[in-house]
Amino acid sequence: MSRPHRIVFANEKGGTGKSTTAVHVAVALAYRGANVAAFDLDHRQRTMCRYFENRAETMQRRGIDLPTARCHVVEGMNEAAMERFVEERAAGADFVVIDTPGRDDPLARHAATTADTLVTPMNDSFVDFDLIGQVEGESFKVRKLSFYAELIWEARIKRSRTSIEQNRAQMDWVVVRNRTGYTEARNMGRINQALAEMSKRVGFRVAKGLSERVIYRELFPSGLTLLDKGHLGDLGTSHLVARQELRGLVASLRLPDNTVEIVPEGAQ
């Protein structure tokens, strides 16, 4: 690839599993042999970079080598400075993974508009759906686009005008539904309908994400992921199912693949 494929995880609402999803996708790409550069735009919480710092400490403590990404915190920059910073730190990378804060933020808006693949995780609730569109209170029909959806729509139009001359593909916007296992059936059906209607209007795809599982919170201190076979101890059935969910999510993102999957020593 002439330039790194940029994957941006963006949602102005917190608590949607955005950072967890970003870390696992970055590690999955590293397992494919890709060179991955990660950038954390939330300089307050630094969840993604903290995860990779914990991962590095675990590797050093155990004397093991695991596929990983190099992570950088973006702080105190304007849009132009951020772009220079990303370009410099991502030199030689196959993929750039950007995690944005769960709040309205100028750099997060900018990052979303520059994505090759824009991933918007959401919980299956109309509270989260409100980020991309508003629905009628009785019929649950989509009433209007949200500011965020309009922002991405305009960015995609602008991108289409310059994609040919810049040799870039159209932005692929993927709305990822996390925690679907805990959604009441009737509510899930209404959200299905609203997402289907909205996707036709603004052109995003819908993918199944990660269920609510304690394992994701438990792995954070060690920096390990569900992909680190042979380093997690005995896994229960639910953990194996979660690993399959993760693999399904990565496949559904349809990311470029010019790499060869690698398996770390001691994996099984």
Results as ranks from 00 to 15, higher is better:
residue 143 R to T: 03
residue 162 T to P: 00
residue 166 Q to Y: 05
residue 183 T to V: 15
residue 175 V to C: 05
residue 154 E to S: 07
residue 138 E to V: 15
residue 131 L to K: 02
residue 140 F to Q: 07
residue 178 N to H: 11
residue 160 S to T: 13
residue 128 D to G: 05
residue 179 R to W: 03
residue 133 G to Y: 06
residue 147 F to N: 07
residue 149 A to S: 14
residue 144 K to H: 09
residue 149 A to N: 06
residue 172 D to T: 13
residue 131 L to N: 01
residue 157 I to A: 11
residue 132 I to Q: 02
residue 152 I to S: 04
residue 158 K to C: 03
residue 129 F to G: 02
residue 178 N to G: 08
residue 132 I to E: 04
residue 175 V to R: 02
residue 178 N to K: 08
residue 152 I to G: 01
residue 181 G to N: 13
residue 169 A to M: 07
residue 178 N to Y: 11
residue 178 N to F: 11
residue 172 D to Y: 04
residue 180 T to F: 01
residue 162 T to Q: 10
residue 148 Y to I: 13
residue 180 T to R: 13
residue 133 G to M: 07
residue 138 E to Q: 13
residue 149 A to R: 09
residue 160 S to A: 15
residue 151 L to E: 14
residue 135 V to R: 05
residue 181 G to Q: 09
residue 154 E to K: 14
residue 179 R to T: 04
residue 134 Q to H: 11
residue 152 I to W: 07
residue 172 D to N: 14
residue 167 N to Q: 14
residue 133 G to F: 07
residue 140 F to W: 13
residue 160 S to L: 09
residue 146 S to V: 01
residue 174 V to L: 02
residue 137 G to L: 07
residue 144 K to F: 09
residue 149 A to W: 10
residue 149 A to Q: 10
residue 168 R to V: 06
residue 156 R to P: 00
residue 134 Q to Y: 12
residue 182 Y to W: 08
residue 148 Y to D: 00
residue 171 M to T: 15
residue 135 V to F: 01
residue 131 L to H: 02
residue 153 W to F: 11
residue 152 I to D: 02
residue 172 D to E: 12
residue 158 K to D: 14
residue 143 R to C: 01
residue 166 Q to P: 00
residue 153 W to G: 02
residue 180 T to K: 06
residue 160 S to M: 11
residue 144 K to S: 14
residue 142 V to Y: 10
residue 132 I to L: 15
residue 139 S to T: 15
residue 179 R to Y: 08
residue 148 Y to F: 15
residue 179 R to I: 05
residue 136 E to V: 03
residue 158 K to W: 11
residue 167 N to F: 11
residue 173 W to F: 09
residue 176 V to Y: 07
residue 137 G to V: 08
residue 177 R to G: 01
residue 176 V to W: 06
residue 132 I to R: 01
residue 153 W to H: 13
residue 142 V to W: 10
residue 175 V to S: 04
residue 165 E to N: 08
residue 131 L to W: 03
residue 128 D to I: 10
residue 175 V to Y: 03
residue 172 D to C: 05
residue 132 I to W: 03
residue 146 S to T: 03
residue 174 V to P: 00
residue 173 W to G: 03
residue 174 V to A: 01
residue 135 V to E: 00
residue 175 V to H: 03
residue 169 A to Q: 11
residue 145 L to S: 08
residue 130 D to P: 00
residue 166 Q to L: 14
residue 157 I to K: 13
residue 143 R to G: 01
residue 130 D to Q: 10
residue 161 R to H: 12
residue 138 E to L: 15
residue 182 Y to H: 09
residue 156 R to F: 02
residue 163 S to H: 09
residue 146 S to R: 06
residue 165 E to I: 06
residue 165 E to D: 11
residue 134 Q to T: 12
residue 182 Y to R: 12
residue 148 Y to G: 00
residue 141 K to G: 04
residue 174 V to T: 14
residue 171 M to Q: 12
residue 181 G to F: 08
residue 156 R to E: 07
residue 177 R to V: 15
residue 157 I to D: 06
residue 176 V to R: 06
residue 147 F to P: 00
